[in-house]
Write a protein that binds this DNA or RNA. Sequence first.
DNA 1: TAGTGGTCTAGACCACAGC
DNA 2: CTGTGGTCTAGACCACTAG
Lengths: 245, 245
Amino acid sequence: MHDHAPDTRPATLHARIRADVEARILSGEWKPGDRLPTETELMARYGCSRMTVNKAMASLAATGLISRNRRAGTVVSRPRMHAAVLTIPDIRANIEARGARYGYRPLLDEMRPPCCVHLGAEGHHLGQSRFIRSVHLADGSPVLIEDRHIFLDAVSDAAAADFHNQPPGPWLVAHVPWTEAEHRIAAIAADALTARTLEVGVGAPCLLVERRTWRGDETLTIARQVFRGDAFDLTARFGPKQGLS
Amino acid sequence: MHDHAPDTRPATLHARIRADVEARILSGEWKPGDRLPTETELMARYGCSRMTVNKAMASLAATGLISRNRRAGTVVSRPRMHAAVLTIPDIRANIEARGARYGYRPLLDEMRPPCCVHLGAEGHHLGQSRFIRSVHLADGSPVLIEDRHIFLDAVSDAAAADFHNQPPGPWLVAHVPWTEAEHRIAAIAADALTARTLEVGVGAPCLLVERRTWRGDETLTIARQVFRGDAFDLTARFGPKQGLS
DNA sequence: TAGTGGTCTAGACCACAGC
DNA sequence: CTGTGGTCTAGACCACTAG
């Protein structure tokens, strides 16, 4: 009766404790605001040392399911829906997941002198960059136009990379470690150039994704991606439990 | 030379070990693929027990910065840019963060019989729901139109909740624990009704966010939010290091 | 002030994968 | 086989805070 699922119960003790407590919370047996048993009580209940209980509870606290305070004890958190998580998929994987053939066509590839790049309203002082404008296609139809700057001060290897047959995105993922990124997602109307490139009417709705990536204080790359609104969307499914890994 | 930051070094030992190792990786001293010292070596280096080292390293492994294997040891991971994270902000907080006055106006509030709700192409069998259509305003101008279903089988309290002055979103966040959610983000053209409500032209680009939330197998709520494309965007900044909490 | 979680130790055994 | 991380223990002291 309890093996409809492939019995995915964790083998380790602290993981089982964690799963047990988690299940009681998610089932509603322990509701937000309720106080949980103390570590000493759980230690007796599961017949293990306090360190093991602590590991389980610390893990639950790290994902935000419970909140722990000295003296006050452990209570079930109220879930925070706004702090949701969305994975932004790889373009190629996304297109192929829809059963379409992926295509890539570079339009422009040039060096840009050290100067300002407009991102939002601000101008940013940045070094010399390699600029690649490219189109990504699904079954031969343009779906995405991507403008990408790669800053050579931070990513010197990019000067020699070949982006004729390979988009810069995957190359960067494979070669460059990063520490921080910023995204902006918006709906915009296609201007004349975008409309011509994406083969839509001027003013057609497009999904804009701007991504800027740093390592430390150094900007590595800025990407501006404009998707055909009628051909692309971002989807993500997630739970509050899993970490980032 | 190293205290330009307000010396935010963690007080606990395992956190300091973690921060130290993390800094070496992010600075490039230890590059992706490099093998890190063993736990025994680190134990000697930091003059502490192996459990403490393990706690630090396990934490780094949980966030994906390093990868650990028995016998093979610990190596620095290659960062995976596609598995990025985006926090979806609260509407009210977002509007107020822009310095605008937030407003809320319910347009429709009715019970819907148990039946199908269209989400994407599929029809889903769902129980009786409370349906609320509302408009959210920034400085009196409509910015978002929201259609929300709350399924009473799963959220019985919602039948009695007052949504005249309070949007359903925050109410749900405060009252209902959830386990899973799915988002879809797209750019669409405003239809006649949307255009009239948002005070834009027909065909104007709008940002669509559809969100569906479960607890276990039960659907709790479905929200369809249409933002004025020229007045709203989603932004998020993040690093690969922090967890979800 | 008393009880709680937070941290740390010095050991131990185990499972796994490369040699 | 051997070395690695993974786990667990039985204890200890500390820091914080609610009563």
